[in-house]
Each structure stands twice: as C-alpha cells, then as structure tokens.
Design a protein around this nucleic acid. Sequence first.
DNA 1: TGAAATAGAACAATCGATTGTCCTAAAGTA
DNA 2: TACTTTAGGACAATCGATTGTTCTATTTCA
Lengths: 345, 345
Amino acid sequence: MTAPTPKTTLKAVAEQLGLTPTTVSRVLGGKGDQYRISQKTQQRVRDLAAKLNFSPNQIARGLRLSKTSTIGLIVPDISNPYFGTIAHHVTAEARRRGYSILLCDSQEDTRYEIEAIQLIRSRNVDGLVLCAVGVSDEHIAELAESDQQVVLVDRCYPGLAIPSVTSDNVRGAREATEYLIRHGHKRIACLQGLQHSALNRDRVLGYREALAQHDISIAEELIVGDNFAQQSGYVATRLLLHAQTKFTAILAMSNQIALGALQAVSEESIKIPDDVSIIAFDDSPYAPYLATPMTTVKQRNEEMGQIAVQLLFARFESQKPSHGLLLPTQLIERESVVRIRPEDS
Amino acid sequence: MTAPTPKTTLKAVAEQLGLTPTTVSRVLGGKGDQYRISQKTQQRVRDLAAKLNFSPNQIARGLRLSKTSTIGLIVPDISNPYFGTIAHHVTAEARRRGYSILLCDSQEDTRYEIEAIQLIRSRNVDGLVLCAVGVSDEHIAELAESDQQVVLVDRCYPGLAIPSVTSDNVRGAREATEYLIRHGHKRIACLQGLQHSALNRDRVLGYREALAQHDISIAEELIVGDNFAQQSGYVATRLLLHAQTKFTAILAMSNQIALGALQAVSEESIKIPDDVSIIAFDDSPYAPYLATPMTTVKQRNEEMGQIAVQLLFARFESQKPSHGLLLPTQLIERESVVRIRPEDS
DNA sequence: TGAAATAGAACAATCGATTGTCCTAAAGTA
DNA sequence: TACTTTAGGACAATCGATTGTTCTATTTCA
C-alpha cells in the first residue's frame, strides 16, 4: 500500500518558508499588499503553496468565519428526475458561486425532513434550499423564525414569510382541466397527490375551478389518491375502474402518479386515448415515446433550481423580505387526449 | 421580522449551569460516569441541553476530531435517474450510519470532476463515493495514493487499487447481444457511450465477444456514438439511417442513448421492432409503457449505492484492501426485439 | 544626528468542541 | 491525628485558518 500523504496545512507551508501562518494566510487571501508583505515573499509563498497543492481546510475556515460556503438541499426523493433536475441546477448554480451542496433525501417523510433540517443546521450551512414534503408546517414555521436562511422550492407554505419559487399550480391544473373540457370531457378523474399538502391543494383547486367555470358539477368520487407516488396512482386507478365509476379522462397530479395510472390501465387492457384520455403533471423525456405520447403539464424545474439559489444569495446580500415567486407551467400537447362527442360524457 | 435566535453553544449551556464546557461535553458525550460527574449534575446538564435544543456545532467538532461524518458523492449527472437512484440509496445508507452527503455534479466533464474532488477533499470528508466520468485516470490515481478513502461506483479503473462496485458490463452486453443473435440478428448497431472510458470499453467488449463467439464478423461501421447522452444516441442513429448502413437491431449503451435512438427512429417513421429491434442498457419505469415496451439490461443500481457506502465503512474499520465488486445485470425481456428469418440479416 | 515614518512580518486571540491532566475538598484508613 | 483515597470538576491545549494589534529594523527628513 502506498504511504498516505497527509494534508498540507497553512502552518506547514509557513514553516517551510520560515514564516508565520499569518503571513501565508494573508498572501493567499489576496491581502498581501494591504499588509505590506514584500513582493518577493509573496511570490515565494504562492510558489510553495502551488507546489504543495495547498488548499485551506474548509472546516477550520468555516469555524473561524462562521461561513461554510455550503448550501443545504433537502428533497423528497432524489431518484425522481423531477427533483433530480432541480438538484442538478441547484448544484450547478451553487458551484458557480463557490458553494457546495449538502444533500438530504427526506424520502417523502416529514420525520426525516425534520431530522434533515436539524442535521443541516448543525453543520452551519449558509443557506437551505428546501423541497418540503408539504404536510406539516410547524417545523417550517420554526425554521422561518430562526436565523437560518431558507428558500422553499416546489412546495411552499403560503402563510409563512419565507421566500419561495413554485409553479403556478392552480393555473397549471386549471388549464389542463380546461383543455380536457374543451375536448368534450366532463367526467374527469383527478388522481391527486399528498392530501393536505399545499401543492396538492393548489392543483386540485385548479381542477375544481375549471369545472366550476364550465358549470360542470364536481364529482367527489372522482377525486382520489393519497400521495405523489406511483403506487398511489396505480391503486387509485384500479379502484376507479373497479367501481365502474364512469369517467372519460384522467388528470394525474405527478409523473409518478401518471406511471401508476399507465400501469393500471395497461393491466385492464384499456386504450389511451380511445377509452380514456390522460394528462399528467411533469413532463418527461419519455413522454413523446410512450404507447400514446402523453400530453403533460411541464414545469420549469430547471429554472426553479437556479432561481432558488439566486433567491438565497439575494437574501444573503439584503434583508429585504422576498415574496413567493410563481413560475408558469406549459401544457405540452401530444396524443393522450381525444375529442369526444358531448353525449358520451 | 422576528428576532433571529442565535445558536446555542456548549459554552452557553455550561455558563447557565455554572459549569465548564468540559463537564457539559462529557455528560452529553456519554462519558459522564467515566469522569465521575455526579448523577445530579448529569441530569441538570441533560435537562438544560434538551430545553435549549442544543446540538453541537459539527464544524467545530469536525475540526477537533478531524472527522466530519460526511461522505462526498460525485456523480456525472444527478438529473439522470440512473445516478439519482444511486444517490438515493447512498444518502439513505449514509444517514442510517449518521453520515451526511456532500454532493457534486460533474456534468460529465472531467475538469469539473477534478474540481469537485479538490473541493470535497478540502472539506475533509471521511470518505468519497465517486461515479467517475471515466476517461482520464491521472487524478484518480492521485486520489488512490492520497489518504482519502474512496469507493468507485459504476465506472471503475481496473488498474487502480481502489475498491469499487460496478455492473458486470462485459457480461451484460454479451448477454444482450446474444439475445439479439438468438433472434436471428447479425447486423447489430452498437450505440456506444463515452469512448476511452472503461465502462464503454467493457460493454463494447461484451458486444464483440458475443459476435465473435457466433462467428459473426464485426462491422466497425456499426459501432458508433460519442458519449452517454441522448444527443449522441440521436445523432448516431440518424447517421446510421442516413448512411443506408444495413442493420436489423440496435444495442444502446445507456438509457439516454436509447432515448436518442427512439427520437431518431420516430422522426424517420421507422417501426420498432418490425423495422429494427432495440435493447437498451438501464431499465426505466417508463420502459413497459413505451410505444414498444423496451427490452432492457437492468443494472442493480439500488444495490450499488448501498454497497458503495458499505465498502466505504468496511475500509474505515480495516485496512484490508478490498477488490472490485461485480454485480450481475438482468435482461428484462419486453417487446422491442423481433425474431427475424436468417436470410433477412 | 535624532526623531518620525515606513516596510515587513510576527504575536496572540478567536471560532466551538474535545480531552489529557491537574486541583480541591471530603471521606476513608492506619 | 496524619496520610491516602476518592469524588467532582476545572484547566488548558488542540484542531487550522483568520485578523486586529504590535514589534523591529530601516529609511526618510529636517
């Protein structure tokens, strides 16, 4: 086995040059001139530091400066490409500013989320980007009152004074529903996500608004589902089909719910869109190549990640309270919705 | 705005009790008895700590103990569900052991990867889980000689004495190719990934082996593509089709390459599997619901994430050099491969 | 030539938690 | 009574980098 090379410290560099850590630190920190370190010394310091591949211990630095150049990121499920994309852009945007990312996966579980928040705070991150699970909000309220800088992404809590960036979920759901209505659908199943979450509430609200505006009575038995996972979409769809509840279209409130619906529908040998139309929240690179290319509500999750970091840095620089940012969604029309004759509905 | 609550320190707890930080630290560290702190004092300490919601500053702790309870994780692209899944299981497994994850996304760029490694090391992580980009290996060799604990995942460097966990890529590709051959295919396009990467070399090797074993001459013009991205798969497929190069099947070396192939094929209105069969590396939840359900080579990426962390901890505990771990792949048969008559090929 | 100014760098405290060692008063022992 | 134990904690150094202050030769200038 090779002998491990111990890390080079500031002190080690200083000793090799016959200087003190103070001097070395100032030179490398760009304050050499300010503190009248001679050019010759400065050059010697820089040369040796480069040669030894010295880079300051960020832990020590973090302790001294109480600034870790780290941003915490909590997401419900990093294996979901929706959050993966957000994370990708958060990390990219953070790196551009010299920040690192401390990642936690809350597994869609509020308990883990609380744990993650504590963990991340005990590590003194400079800021926190939080994709909350979205049900309980007590711990979020606590967070808002602490000195921790936070930005909420994707799922926000309207009551709390925390900067946030989310899709305009009400509008996105309303537009999707209206699209279905324009195509003659009146009995539209709503495969909802996590109940009592703000995110779900907004989407279902948009769905209800669209129906109400078109004088279509809302059939509560068509609003089903427990959470944003595939399993929930599957079960809900199977139950709907089994109950012989009549419906001509499905609005799935997440990409995973949509997958569950596809699974259920394929098992029943029901054809999309001939037998039932479907629109899903969240676009996917696979959407165009599905058995029936799927019409989706695309969210700007790339921008969400970038904006989240930018909001965070805006907070670092000023104490101005920033409001929630609403991003538009886009209905991507493919072939999973069929126009039906009014009498069918 | 609410007044920010400053963080509680050990010293603050100690002062409120009229004790020294030493005592408080020992009690909370479970060493109260060992250092003969009276039960009464211990209880007072614990009570106040709980009341103030004290949790030690991990930065200070990390400095003193030179142990940060943090694992670095570098992936080429966290928005790719393949890596997302690995990350998900790495974080879960790490949390179970009280470790946090410092995440970097190298964007499939070796320069960023090198940057990420430096960054992560300057933050004194206890271990590093690296999904390397896979072309250059000088910086990896350097890493191997340092005192940094590392585990390579998904993409390994055979020459280096670094523990790793990867799929048995040679065998996976060979089995997929054999499957195609058994279905009568002889001219099989190989949409490869990043050239000169060990991962790609292995997969292409498996492909060549299978052909060789069946006495099928290897048509070099059928081995095309630059990297693991969708764009590469798209371009390569378009070019193949444009060149009128005859082939009856495609072996795509990643999920994203496969997407690119689907894109190209759909634009040329070519039917899968009637006109061309396809098998792709990496399974996807969408695979069963594609226009043609796709036959895939499924990797055990969930286990990869878990095993990576376990290997890392095994290294923490013993200095035994561990070898590379090879995980089997699984061919998931769907409908994207058609049996053709020998004379067609 | 003597005092003031300046160049060049060293000293020492600090961030917060941990730990080997040391101190003091009460209790036990001969 | 005189001495050793023991209980219960306190002291102070340490991890590595940063920074306000201080110190010492040279220069500079009148």
